[in-house]
Design a binder for these strands. Structure first.
Lengths: 341, 341
DNA sequence: TTTTAGCACTCTGTTGTTTCGAGTGCTAAA
DNA sequence: TTTAGCACTCGAAACAACAGAGTGCTAAAA
């Protein structure tokens, strides 16, 4: 069966109506939405065809039709008219997003906030990651006689720190020695180089000071790993409660969102600027009833991180896709400006 | 009406049975739980008295009885037999809690985790706060030509940092100047001294360099404020979903937990070592259906922070109160050891 | 005076029945 | 190919019937 123009129009109308109301849409209700006049019987026939073709389905025999994953996909790829954000919205967003102090984390937090508010979905974002980030500085700062903070600053502008306990008292010489070892071996080198294995050989070469230093280096490796694994920010989680159709899965969904790794993977995956996964298109089963729209941002020309929203499958794609593109573009621009290389 | 010993036994049995099962408890069910034999009619009479006295209530006319806030309170204060954690449990907890690297945040995270797991509640904790903390070090680290990280290290061992954008290029001289100004004016002084007002006068006194420095100082004030407002950690939030009786309030409750300030207030409030608020005893209406058990910990003899659990009112107080005391004691000990002054 | 047995009563939750309405698929005529 | 008409299906809501748990009260027993 081939896809006629009339079928397309009907499919689009069904999708849009369902997105708007959340109710299965019946043949009669559709009459008003179409720009041509036919009877409801004709529409019924067409809808039956579309159902057979896999674009629509019925929750039960005597209900209206609901788009399938395939239906949404066709709509998004071929039928949808994008709805660019208004000048007004753009300004409001830009104002909120840039209201921070220039701190990347704060920036992404604001961006997530504004997205969550505007879309009524949960917003996720990843910090600009420094895959090729190098060590800019590493040092220890004594806190107690046997405790110190290890501080690691990367070229990507992230600073990580962690307390660390030593078996031996920390002297100014320890501090000095650590600093110079780091300066000699790490500064300017990529973060990946600070692996536990590599550190073991290094510690071995330190001879008599190996003992007092080893715990510091272990912590340093922790920090490096931490700096490499891009942080995930989550906003508007509770918006999900407003979407009835997510049903009992909400709890699992929220649990899923809480642990960052899968989200981080999700966001880092797509190759295109914008990436849309509808319901079962998602590889995580917790997202089988949800859609995600992921928009990547570039910092100084390099793909660096992404912003995403997660909500029910009946998202207002026509509006949200351009919105996400706009916000991620904005974030990329601001970050590019602030993180020069 | 006075409280006879028999009434006390019945009240205790009702509370314990309700805590165990979550079902309103009827007169017949209670027969087996008591160490004396009377008929169900007698118990009914006594329960009616207890209800009249305000310790019990009925969800509806023909249901069993449920403890009121007052009932729980009486039980906890006068009737309860504390159930100290077993040696086994103590060891398991101690092992988990001390498995971190000596970082206070990680320590509290682990503690919260273990509490959440053990109790099936949401766990909250505040970082050791440094009310009397002083500035140990403050500096800027250039990231781009016009961007820098401001880093603030306090005597309490917390390190805060934030990116900041400057209107003018940042030169090594800027870094040096900032460092020396901080060394002269802030190091050793309490964090509260870095107020915006104080900074304004300072900036004014800097003359020609005022402009290039001002944004850094503003950020520094942010950091100081941030370091003073103790961070709140939250674990096991989703455990709350397992408690049916929280009902529709769960959403509000989770929203409430998400924003840290009220929690921070809640935890910093109590004067006693342990602090129990049952249902409506809580001043926040979002907690009206919940109980909180807060246990404070001391670092080097000074009240520094607290751990708490939040769950339904039918908590197993007899078990959880000693548990919380144990964990907070443990946390205090470990922190005292690692943060020497 | 206190305890107990007995009984009528109340309230909830469940189950089954009915009804209503929305929407469909099919058939036959336009 | 389209449309009108109609029988049919299914879910949601409304309603009645009922079982079960538990109570309060009364009157007898201890």
């Amino acid at each position: 069966m081939e896809m006629t123009q009339r079928k397309q129009k009907i499919l689009a109308a069904v999708v849009e109506s369902y997105i708007r109301t959340g109710e299965p849409v019946g043949s009669k209700n559709l009459l008003g939405e179409l720009d041509f006049s036919v009877s409801s019987a004709t529409i019924r026939n067409e809808m039956a065809d579309l159902a057979e073709m896999g674009y629509l389905e019925q929750p039960h025999t005597s209900a209206g039709r609901v788009p399938t994953t395939l239906g949404y996909r066709y709509y998004i790829d071929k039928l949808m008219n994008k709805l660019e954000p208004t000048e007004e919205d753009r300004k409001a967003i830009a104002k909120t997003v840039s209201s921070g102090s220039g701190d990347p984390e704060q920036l992404l937090e604001k961006a997530g906030e504004v997205i969550a508010r505007l879309t009524g979905c949960a917003a996720v974002s990843t910090m600009p990651l420094g895959e090729k980030a190098t060590v800019r500085r590493a040092e220890i700062v004594p806190v107690g006689t046997r405790t110190a903070m290890i501080v690691l600053l990367t070229s990507a502008g992230t600073l990580k720190s962690k307390a660390c306990r030593s078996d031996m008292p920390i002297t100014p010489q320890t501090v000095e020695r650590f600093y110079s070892v780091c300066a000699a071996h790490f500064v300017g080198k990529p973060l990946e180089d600070i692996s536990t294995v590599m550190l073991q050989t290094l510690v071995a070469s330190l001879g008599e000071h190996a003992l007092e230093m080893s715990s510091f280096f272990v912590t340093l490796a922790d920090l490096a790993a931490d700096a490499l694994s891009s942080d995930v920010l989550l906003e508007g989680q509770s918006n999900l409660f407003n979407h009835r159709e997510l049903g009992g899965n909400i709890i699992e969904l929220m649990e899923f969102l809480r642990k960052g790794e899968p989200i981080s993977k999700l966001l880092s995956k797509g190759k295109d600027d914008i990436d849309i996964k509808i319901g079962t298109e998602n590889e995580y089963k917790q997202l089988a009833n949800s859609s995600v729209i992921i928009s990547h941002y570039d910092v100084n020309g390099a793909r660096s991180g992404a912003l995403g929203i997660i909500g029910p499958t009946r998202l207002n794609y026509a509006k949200l896709i351009p919105y996400m593109q706009f916000v991620s573009g904005l974030v990329g621009d601001i970050l590019s400006e602030s993180i020069e290389d």
